[in-house]
Design a protein around this nucleic acid. Structure first.
Lengths: 189, 189
DNA sequence: GTCTATAGTGGGATAGAC
DNA sequence: GTCTATCCCACTATAGAC
């Protein structure tokens, strides 16, 4: 996530602000100030505030979608697929925690087709995740509890990991993966 | 959470909007419309938009703080205390999911002393939770993994439960408590 | 590609009639 | 206690000079 073009740099700086205060509370003037320019100048590079949000969220959502597709096609057990999904979330958290904040908290401020596309992708993602859990239950690898509770419990932890990852002084990613997989799959007792 | 006074009704209606769109994206005109009045009339009952947020978040935070204090004083094992804490979160989620959304997502829009007070209460709450986990580890009731990973995993699930609870057609609370305790404590394998 | 200036809109909040 | 009218300000975005 190293911004190369001017446009990417604007989107990157905006994402920092969106994470701190939320999309609605961030102004074009705030973003311009971080860029060291005036708000009007931003419009030479981007269409507007909405475009920034849309790029941030939809690009990231596509990352989750393609990651899910790859994992689904692997010839491994359902439980191993869930481990891979946990690792996917951790990798994305580490590399794109700002965009993740927008995806979690500001998706409802997307407009029209962007909003529809996002909601569709998210439902799709959850549906595939749920199916992997169900398969794990049916082959006896996972406890026969309500798949929805399991899905929610894992996803909510992974989705809010970005809030916590940097507070704790950047744990080593591999240690984090190992401990997280252990806690989520095997519990704490 | 049945609003009785006019002021409480305004705060309640506002909380619905804050949950949907976030504090910054909700206008006094939006709130007034839900109340069937004009924005100017709101000011006969409340000081302003900030007061609404402040009451919503601080009242709820105090609920968590006093719940934690009660549980800590019980003469039960660390693991049983964690079970009680899970139940506390579920009860609050069921009864006050709108305020919970503001507490999770809009706390940074509190001002001055309110912001300070909230941050202090939250840190305190996490500190006490962490100590219960550590005690559980030291008496051998809980796996000797990093307490921070355990704390985060449980708290992030409980904190975002409000997002999910109503989508799924209001599960029976007792079933939810039982399954949630099982998944969080014993894992899914 | 950045600037100043400004249009156009909508926000929180207040004054004062009823 | 609610209303209309309005203030003042901040917002997104555009126009046009440099």
């Amino acid at each position: 996530m190293k911004p190369t073009t001017r446009k990417e740099e604007i989107i990157f700086q905006a994402s920092q602000l969106f994470k701190e205060k939320g999309f609605s509370a961030v102004t074009m003037r705030d973003i311009a100030q971080l860029m060291g320019m005036k708000a009007a100048s931003l419009y030479n590079h981007i269409e507007g505030k909405q475009e920034i949000l849309s790029i941030l969220i939809l690009d990231l959502a596509k990352g989750f979608t393609s990651g899910m597709r790859e994992i689904e096609q692997m010839k491994i057990s359902p439980l191993q697929k869930i481990e891979k999904l946990i690792e996917l979330h951790i990798d994305i958290t580490v590399n794109q925690s700002e965009a993740l904040a927008s995806l979690n908290n500001d998706w409802m401020h997307l407009e029209d087709q962007d909003l529809e596309e996002f909601v569709r992708m998210r439902e799709d993602y959850e549906e595939h995740f749920r199916n992997i859990i169900k398969e794990g239950i049916s082959v006896g690898q996972i406890q026969p509890r309500h798949p929805e509770v399991i899905l929610f419990s894992i996803l909510s932890t992974l989705r809010t990991l970005y809030l916590w990852y940097q507070k704790r002084g950047k744990l080593d990613v591999n240690i984090l993966k190992r401990d997280m997989v252990a806690v989520l799959l095997r519990g704490i007792i």
